[in-house]
């Protein structure tokens, strides 16, 4: 087969594809033979083989994009079974719906809720009461410690002033009073530290702990529902 025969066959075989595609292919093979040159043209024609096969390859690529994409998908994931040309996969079956509870279960649950609700309510109230008590205790403690601090500060101030005044009259007694005021100032600073600790650390820490508790409860619940969902799917 010479070049003219090859091109004529190919052109005839490609009449069923879009005009532009055919022109493009013919153009390509004309260029191809030109570039092969007189020395290699025989070789090129022989190596291209049957125009029928060449035409088929062109047609596969240009007129059936579905088949091509299918083929490439198969390559990516070998699990997908080979599908015939133009095949569209059936729609995925819907995930099975959650089975509704049988009526006897609904009745039992309703009864349980009705009869146990006072108990559940009581337990919830107790829990809330405990939390409130702890908070109140902490705040009360903090306030009283703070109050002690203020009282001590005032006492120290008065003693210091009084002591200072007494030193002028009876130096010995005055010095004792000033000494006592220093002791009280030390105690006062101690209570200041306690107040700061209670307000700044203990109370926020308790609230943080409460928050974390609530969060972990929520997460557990979420995990449980997720696990349930996994089983039903």
């Amino acid at each position: 087969m010479n070049r003219e025969e090859f091109m004529a066959r190919l052109s005839a075989l490609l009449t069923d594809i879009p005009e532009k595609e055919r022109e493009d292919a013919i153009r390509y093979y004309n260029d191809y033979f030109d570039d092969a040159g007189p020395n290699h043209i025989e070789e090129a024609i022989e190596s291209l083989g049957d125009p029928q096969k060449v035409a088929e390859q062109i047609r596969n690529e240009t007129t059936d994009p579905i088949a091509v994409t299918k083929e490439r998908k198969n390559e990516v994931s070998t699990q997908i079974e080979e599908a015939p040309k133009g095949f569209t996969p059936p729609p995925k079956p819907l995930p099975p719906k959650k089975e509704p509870l049988p009526s006897w279960a609904v009745v039992l649950i309703t009864l349980a809720v009705v009869f146990l609700s006072p108990l559940i309510l009581a337990l919830a109230l107790v829990a809330i009461a405990i939390v409130i008590t702890v908070i109140a205790t902490l705040i009360a403690l903090a306030i009283s410690v703070g109050a002690v601090f203020i009282v001590l500060a005032v006492a120290a101030f008065i003693l210091l002033l009084g002591g200072g005044y007494m030193v002028l009259g009876t130096p010995a007694a005055g010095l004792v009073v000033i000494g006592a005021s220093f002791v009280i100032i030390a105690l006062c600073l101690l209570f200041l530290c306690l107040t700061v600790l209670l307000f700044g650390k203990a109370i926020p820490a308790f609230f943080k702990w409460l928050g974390a508790l609530g969060k972990s409860c929520k997460e557990k619940k979420a995990a449980r529902t997720a696990a349930k969902g996994g089983i039903t799917e």
Binding site: E21, L48, G49, V54, I58, E61, T62
Partner: peptide
């Protein structure tokens, strides 16, 4: 040799 044209296209 015929494989290449479709790839280029």
């Amino acid at each position: 040799e015929s494989t290449l044209y479709p790839v280029l296209r």
